[in-house]
Design a binder for these strands. Structure first.
Length: 314
DNA sequence: AACGCGTGGAT
DNA sequence: TATCCAAGCGT
Protein backbone atom coordinates (compact mmCIF):
# COMPACT_ATOMS: atom_id res chain seq x y z
CA UNK A 1 0.00 0.00 0.00
CA UNK A 2 1.51 3.32 -1.12
CA UNK A 3 2.12 5.99 1.50
CA UNK A 4 0.21 9.30 1.56
CA UNK A 5 2.74 11.19 -0.54
CA UNK A 6 2.92 8.53 -3.24
CA UNK A 7 -0.87 8.28 -3.18
CA UNK A 8 -1.13 11.99 -3.94
CA UNK A 9 1.27 11.52 -6.85
CA UNK A 10 -0.79 8.64 -8.24
CA UNK A 11 -4.03 10.61 -7.99
CA UNK A 12 -2.50 13.67 -9.60
CA UNK A 13 -0.87 11.84 -12.48
CA UNK A 14 -3.61 9.37 -13.32
CA UNK A 15 -6.42 11.90 -12.97
CA UNK A 16 -4.36 14.36 -15.01
CA UNK A 17 -3.76 11.78 -17.70
CA UNK A 18 -7.50 11.06 -17.78
CA UNK A 19 -8.37 14.74 -18.20
CA UNK A 20 -6.09 14.95 -21.21
CA UNK A 21 -6.64 11.67 -23.01
CA UNK A 22 -9.93 10.10 -21.97
CA UNK A 23 -12.23 8.97 -24.75
CA UNK A 24 -15.27 11.13 -25.30
CA UNK A 25 -18.18 8.80 -24.63
CA UNK A 26 -21.85 9.78 -24.55
CA UNK A 27 -22.48 8.32 -21.10
CA UNK A 28 -19.67 10.51 -19.77
CA UNK A 29 -21.36 13.71 -20.89
CA UNK A 30 -22.57 15.81 -17.95
CA UNK A 31 -26.05 15.91 -19.50
CA UNK A 32 -26.36 12.12 -19.59
CA UNK A 33 -29.17 10.89 -17.35
CA UNK A 34 -28.68 8.29 -14.61
CA UNK A 35 -30.82 5.99 -16.76
CA UNK A 36 -28.45 6.46 -19.67
CA UNK A 37 -25.55 5.62 -17.39
CA UNK A 38 -27.28 2.54 -16.01
CA UNK A 39 -28.03 1.30 -19.53
CA UNK A 40 -24.42 1.84 -20.55
CA UNK A 41 -23.06 -0.01 -17.53
CA UNK A 42 -25.21 -3.06 -18.17
CA UNK A 43 -24.39 -3.08 -21.88
CA UNK A 44 -20.70 -2.77 -21.05
CA UNK A 45 -20.72 -5.87 -18.87
CA UNK A 46 -18.38 -8.09 -20.88
CA UNK A 47 -18.96 -6.18 -24.12
CA UNK A 48 -16.48 -3.69 -25.67
CA UNK A 49 -17.29 0.01 -25.99
CA UNK A 50 -17.26 0.10 -29.79
CA UNK A 51 -20.02 -2.48 -30.01
CA UNK A 52 -22.11 -0.86 -27.29
CA UNK A 53 -22.12 2.65 -28.77
CA UNK A 54 -24.67 2.25 -31.61
CA UNK A 55 -27.05 0.12 -29.56
CA UNK A 56 -26.87 2.51 -26.63
CA UNK A 57 -27.89 5.40 -28.89
CA UNK A 58 -30.84 3.44 -30.26
CA UNK A 59 -32.01 2.46 -26.79
CA UNK A 60 -31.81 5.97 -25.35
CA UNK A 61 -33.67 7.39 -28.31
CA UNK A 62 -36.35 4.72 -28.12
CA UNK A 63 -36.55 4.54 -24.33
CA UNK A 64 -35.38 7.85 -22.83
CA UNK A 65 -36.75 6.85 -19.43
CA UNK A 66 -37.09 3.62 -17.43
CA UNK A 67 -40.88 3.90 -17.74
CA UNK A 68 -40.58 3.84 -21.52
CA UNK A 69 -38.83 0.49 -21.48
CA UNK A 70 -41.03 -0.84 -18.70
CA UNK A 71 -44.07 -0.14 -20.87
CA UNK A 72 -42.97 -2.62 -23.53
CA UNK A 73 -42.74 -6.41 -23.54
CA UNK A 74 -39.47 -7.89 -22.30
CA UNK A 75 -39.03 -9.51 -25.70
CA UNK A 76 -38.72 -6.10 -27.28
CA UNK A 77 -35.72 -5.36 -25.06
CA UNK A 78 -34.19 -8.68 -26.10
CA UNK A 79 -34.84 -7.95 -29.78
CA UNK A 80 -33.35 -4.46 -29.59
CA UNK A 81 -30.36 -5.86 -27.71
CA UNK A 82 -29.24 -7.07 -31.11
CA UNK A 83 -25.96 -8.93 -31.13
CA UNK A 84 -24.44 -7.46 -27.98
CA UNK A 85 -24.34 -10.94 -26.46
CA UNK A 86 -25.53 -12.34 -23.13
CA UNK A 87 -29.15 -11.44 -23.94
CA UNK A 88 -30.34 -12.17 -20.42
CA UNK A 89 -28.80 -8.81 -19.60
CA UNK A 90 -31.55 -7.28 -21.73
CA UNK A 91 -34.16 -9.24 -19.83
CA UNK A 92 -32.78 -8.07 -16.50
CA UNK A 93 -32.45 -4.48 -17.64
CA UNK A 94 -36.12 -4.60 -18.60
CA UNK A 95 -36.95 -6.03 -15.16
CA UNK A 96 -34.85 -3.28 -13.58
CA UNK A 97 -36.83 -0.68 -15.54
CA UNK A 98 -40.06 -2.19 -14.22
CA UNK A 99 -38.74 -2.13 -10.66
CA UNK A 100 -37.57 1.48 -11.03
CA UNK A 101 -40.95 2.48 -12.40
CA UNK A 102 -42.97 0.66 -9.77
CA UNK A 103 -40.81 1.00 -6.68
CA UNK A 104 -38.73 4.13 -7.22
CA UNK A 105 -41.20 6.54 -8.79
CA UNK A 106 -39.52 6.12 -12.17
CA UNK A 107 -36.19 7.47 -10.97
CA UNK A 108 -32.98 5.42 -10.95
CA UNK A 109 -32.09 5.02 -7.25
CA UNK A 110 -29.00 6.84 -6.03
CA UNK A 111 -27.61 4.57 -3.35
CA UNK A 112 -25.42 1.51 -3.68
CA UNK A 113 -27.78 -0.67 -1.65
CA UNK A 114 -30.88 0.24 -3.65
CA UNK A 115 -29.04 -0.15 -6.95
CA UNK A 116 -27.68 -3.52 -5.90
CA UNK A 117 -31.23 -4.75 -5.38
CA UNK A 118 -32.09 -4.19 -9.06
CA UNK A 119 -32.05 -7.20 -11.40
CA UNK A 120 -28.78 -7.51 -13.31
CA UNK A 121 -27.04 -5.00 -11.06
CA UNK A 122 -24.16 -6.49 -9.08
CA UNK A 123 -21.48 -4.93 -6.93
CA UNK A 124 -19.58 -3.38 -9.83
CA UNK A 125 -22.59 -1.85 -11.57
CA UNK A 126 -24.15 -0.57 -8.33
CA UNK A 127 -20.93 1.20 -7.37
CA UNK A 128 -20.39 2.52 -10.89
CA UNK A 129 -23.87 4.04 -11.19
CA UNK A 130 -23.71 5.54 -7.68
CA UNK A 131 -20.37 7.09 -8.59
CA UNK A 132 -20.81 8.14 -12.21
CA UNK A 133 -24.48 9.09 -12.15
CA UNK A 134 -24.68 10.58 -8.67
CA UNK A 135 -21.15 11.68 -7.85
CA UNK A 136 -20.79 9.42 -4.85
CA UNK A 137 -17.50 8.19 -3.44
CA UNK A 138 -17.68 4.45 -4.11
CA UNK A 139 -15.20 1.62 -4.41
CA UNK A 140 -15.60 0.72 -8.08
CA UNK A 141 -13.80 -2.48 -9.01
CA UNK A 142 -13.96 -3.91 -12.50
CA UNK A 143 -11.54 -6.05 -14.47
CA UNK A 144 -9.55 -3.02 -15.65
CA UNK A 145 -9.15 -1.58 -12.18
CA UNK A 146 -8.20 -4.96 -10.78
CA UNK A 147 -5.48 -5.38 -13.39
CA UNK A 148 -4.06 -1.88 -12.83
CA UNK A 149 -3.96 -2.44 -9.07
CA UNK A 150 -2.38 -5.87 -9.53
CA UNK A 151 0.46 -4.41 -11.58
CA UNK A 152 0.93 -0.97 -10.10
CA UNK A 153 0.68 -1.97 -6.43
CA UNK A 154 0.90 -5.73 -6.08
CA UNK A 155 3.51 -6.34 -8.75
CA UNK A 156 1.72 -9.20 -10.49
CA UNK A 157 0.86 -9.50 -14.17
CA UNK A 158 -2.80 -10.28 -13.52
CA UNK A 159 -5.20 -10.05 -10.59
CA UNK A 160 -6.31 -13.16 -8.70
CA UNK A 161 -8.72 -15.43 -10.55
CA UNK A 162 -11.57 -14.36 -8.28
CA UNK A 163 -12.19 -10.98 -6.67
CA UNK A 164 -10.85 -11.07 -3.10
CA UNK A 165 -11.63 -9.06 0.02
CA UNK A 166 -8.01 -7.88 0.03
CA UNK A 167 -8.49 -6.37 -3.41
CA UNK A 168 -11.56 -4.50 -2.24
CA UNK A 169 -9.67 -3.16 0.77
CA UNK A 170 -6.81 -2.07 -1.45
CA UNK A 171 -9.17 -0.33 -3.87
CA UNK A 172 -10.87 1.50 -1.01
CA UNK A 173 -7.50 2.49 0.41
CA UNK A 174 -6.42 3.97 -2.91
CA UNK A 175 -9.53 6.13 -3.28
CA UNK A 176 -9.02 9.92 -3.09
CA UNK A 177 -10.72 11.60 -0.14
CA UNK A 178 -13.14 13.92 -1.91
CA UNK A 179 -16.25 12.85 -3.78
CA UNK A 180 -15.30 14.57 -7.02
CA UNK A 181 -11.71 13.30 -7.08
CA UNK A 182 -12.80 9.76 -6.26
CA UNK A 183 -15.34 9.72 -9.08
CA UNK A 184 -12.71 10.88 -11.52
CA UNK A 185 -10.20 8.39 -10.10
CA UNK A 186 -12.54 5.47 -10.65
CA UNK A 187 -13.10 6.47 -14.25
CA UNK A 188 -9.43 7.24 -14.77
CA UNK A 189 -8.05 3.94 -13.48
CA UNK A 190 -10.63 2.08 -15.54
CA UNK A 191 -9.61 4.07 -18.61
CA UNK A 192 -5.94 3.43 -17.91
CA UNK A 193 -6.65 -0.30 -17.81
CA UNK A 194 -8.72 -0.15 -20.98
CA UNK A 195 -6.30 1.91 -23.07
CA UNK A 196 -2.77 1.35 -21.73
CA UNK A 197 -2.56 -1.25 -18.99
CA UNK A 198 -4.25 -3.87 -21.16
CA UNK A 199 -4.31 -7.59 -20.52
CA UNK A 200 -2.06 -8.66 -23.36
CA UNK A 201 0.34 -6.01 -24.64
CA UNK A 202 0.41 -3.12 -22.13
CA UNK A 203 1.66 0.18 -23.49
CA UNK A 204 3.93 0.91 -20.57
CA UNK A 205 5.91 3.55 -22.46
CA UNK A 206 2.84 5.81 -22.52
CA UNK A 207 1.82 5.15 -18.92
CA UNK A 208 1.86 8.20 -16.62
CA UNK A 209 2.91 6.10 -13.63
CA UNK A 210 5.28 3.57 -15.21
CA UNK A 211 8.08 4.73 -12.89
CA UNK A 212 5.93 3.78 -9.89
CA UNK A 213 4.75 0.41 -11.19
CA UNK A 214 5.64 -2.53 -8.93
CA UNK A 215 5.20 -5.06 -11.73
CA UNK A 216 7.52 -3.16 -14.05
CA UNK A 217 10.05 -2.67 -11.27
CA UNK A 218 10.07 -6.44 -10.84
CA UNK A 219 10.88 -6.87 -14.52
CA UNK A 220 7.36 -7.74 -15.68
CA UNK A 221 7.15 -11.33 -14.39
CA UNK A 222 4.55 -13.53 -16.10
CA UNK A 223 1.27 -14.49 -14.49
CA UNK A 224 1.42 -17.36 -12.03
CA UNK A 225 -1.56 -19.01 -13.67
CA UNK A 226 -2.84 -19.52 -17.19
CA UNK A 227 -6.33 -18.10 -17.63
CA UNK A 228 -8.49 -20.74 -19.20
CA UNK A 229 -10.44 -19.50 -22.17
CA UNK A 230 -14.13 -20.17 -22.57
CA UNK A 231 -14.95 -22.97 -24.93
CA UNK A 232 -17.30 -22.05 -27.73
CA UNK A 233 -17.47 -24.48 -30.63
CA UNK A 234 -19.87 -27.29 -29.92
CA UNK A 235 -21.20 -25.78 -26.70
CA UNK A 236 -24.80 -25.25 -25.66
CA UNK A 237 -24.05 -21.55 -25.63
CA UNK A 238 -23.28 -21.60 -29.32
CA UNK A 239 -26.57 -23.34 -30.02
CA UNK A 240 -28.51 -20.95 -27.77
CA UNK A 241 -26.93 -18.04 -29.60
CA UNK A 242 -27.97 -19.44 -32.95
CA UNK A 243 -31.54 -20.02 -31.74
CA UNK A 244 -31.75 -16.50 -30.34
CA UNK A 245 -30.58 -15.10 -33.68
CA UNK A 246 -33.57 -16.82 -35.28
CA UNK A 247 -36.05 -15.61 -32.67
CA UNK A 248 -34.85 -12.00 -32.86
CA UNK A 249 -35.60 -11.91 -36.56
CA UNK A 250 -38.88 -13.81 -36.47
CA UNK A 251 -42.07 -11.79 -36.42
CA UNK A 252 -44.21 -14.81 -35.57
CA UNK A 253 -43.72 -17.92 -33.44
CA UNK A 254 -41.21 -20.34 -34.94
CA UNK A 255 -42.55 -23.92 -35.04
CA UNK A 256 -40.40 -26.38 -33.11
CA UNK A 257 -39.83 -28.52 -36.20
CA UNK A 258 -38.08 -25.57 -37.84
CA UNK A 259 -35.28 -26.01 -35.35
CA UNK A 260 -35.11 -29.76 -35.69
CA UNK A 261 -35.37 -30.29 -39.42
CA UNK A 262 -33.56 -28.96 -42.43
CA UNK A 263 -35.45 -26.12 -44.12
CA UNK A 264 -35.22 -28.08 -47.37
CA UNK A 265 -37.11 -30.96 -45.75
CA UNK A 266 -39.80 -28.60 -44.58
CA UNK A 267 -40.18 -27.10 -48.01
CA UNK A 268 -40.72 -23.63 -46.62
CA UNK A 269 -39.39 -21.19 -44.06
CA UNK A 270 -40.99 -18.09 -42.58
CA UNK A 271 -39.85 -14.91 -44.24
CA UNK A 272 -36.70 -13.34 -42.92
CA UNK A 273 -35.28 -16.14 -40.82
CA UNK A 274 -33.76 -18.27 -43.56
CA UNK A 275 -30.21 -17.14 -42.89
CA UNK A 276 -30.04 -17.62 -39.10
CA UNK A 277 -31.96 -20.87 -39.45
CA UNK A 278 -29.39 -22.12 -41.94
CA UNK A 279 -26.61 -21.04 -39.60
CA UNK A 280 -28.22 -23.01 -36.78
CA UNK A 281 -28.51 -26.16 -38.89
CA UNK A 282 -24.94 -25.75 -40.05
CA UNK A 283 -23.90 -26.36 -36.43
CA UNK A 284 -25.26 -29.84 -36.90
CA UNK A 285 -25.77 -30.22 -33.18
CA UNK A 286 -27.18 -33.40 -31.68
CA UNK A 287 -30.96 -33.42 -31.14
CA UNK A 288 -30.52 -33.64 -27.37
CA UNK A 289 -28.24 -30.62 -27.39
CA UNK A 290 -30.79 -28.62 -29.35
CA UNK A 291 -33.45 -29.72 -26.86
CA UNK A 292 -31.24 -28.65 -23.98
CA UNK A 293 -30.63 -25.25 -25.55
CA UNK A 294 -34.31 -24.62 -26.22
CA UNK A 295 -35.31 -25.78 -22.73
CA UNK A 296 -32.62 -23.54 -21.26
CA UNK A 297 -33.90 -20.51 -23.12
CA UNK A 298 -37.44 -21.20 -21.90
CA UNK A 299 -36.21 -21.65 -18.34
CA UNK A 300 -34.29 -18.39 -18.51
CA UNK A 301 -37.29 -16.51 -19.87
CA UNK A 302 -35.48 -15.61 -23.07
CA UNK A 303 -38.07 -17.52 -25.07
CA UNK A 304 -41.62 -18.74 -24.55
CA UNK A 305 -43.96 -21.16 -26.25
CA UNK A 306 -46.90 -19.79 -28.18
CA UNK A 307 -48.96 -22.56 -29.67
CA UNK A 308 -46.39 -25.03 -30.97
CA UNK A 309 -43.84 -22.34 -31.69
CA UNK A 310 -41.10 -20.45 -29.93
CA UNK A 311 -40.97 -16.69 -29.69
CA UNK A 312 -39.37 -13.91 -27.64
CA UNK A 313 -41.30 -13.20 -24.42
CA UNK A 314 -44.34 -11.02 -25.03
C1' DA B 1 -16.42 -21.20 -5.44
C1' DA B 2 -16.79 -22.46 -9.87
C1' DC B 3 -19.50 -22.41 -13.71
C1' DG B 4 -22.67 -21.01 -17.51
C1' DC B 5 -23.86 -17.42 -20.14
C1' DG B 6 -22.94 -14.40 -26.53
C1' DT B 7 -20.42 -12.05 -29.65
C1' DG B 8 -16.86 -10.38 -32.65
C1' DG B 9 -12.37 -7.87 -33.11
C1' DA B 10 -7.50 -8.45 -32.42
C1' DT B 11 -3.49 -11.20 -32.60
C1' DT C 1 -7.18 -20.97 -38.04
C1' DA C 2 -7.37 -20.93 -33.00
C1' DT C 3 -7.21 -18.46 -28.91
C1' DC C 4 -7.81 -14.54 -26.10
C1' DC C 5 -10.62 -11.43 -23.96
C1' DA C 6 -14.03 -7.37 -23.15
C1' DA C 7 -16.99 -1.59 -17.73
C1' DG C 8 -20.10 -9.05 -14.70
C1' DC C 9 -24.10 -11.38 -12.84
C1' DG C 10 -26.62 -15.12 -10.73
C1' DT C 11 -26.66 -19.53 -8.95
Amino acid sequence: MPGPAELDTLHERINGWFDETARKLPWREPACSPWGILVSEVMLQQTPVVRVLPVWHEWLERWPTPAGLAGEPAGEAVRRWGRLGYPRRALRLHAAAVAITEDHNGKVPNTYVELLALPGVGSYTAAAVAAFAYGRRETVVDTNIRRVHARLVSGTALPAQALTAAEMRLATGLLPASDSSSVRWNAAVMELGALLCTARAPKCAACPVNDLCAWRAAGGPPSSYVPKGQAWHGTDRQVRGAVMAVLRLADMPVPAEMFHREPADLGFAPAGIGLPLAALHRLNSAPEQLERALAGLLADGLAEMHGDGYRLPA
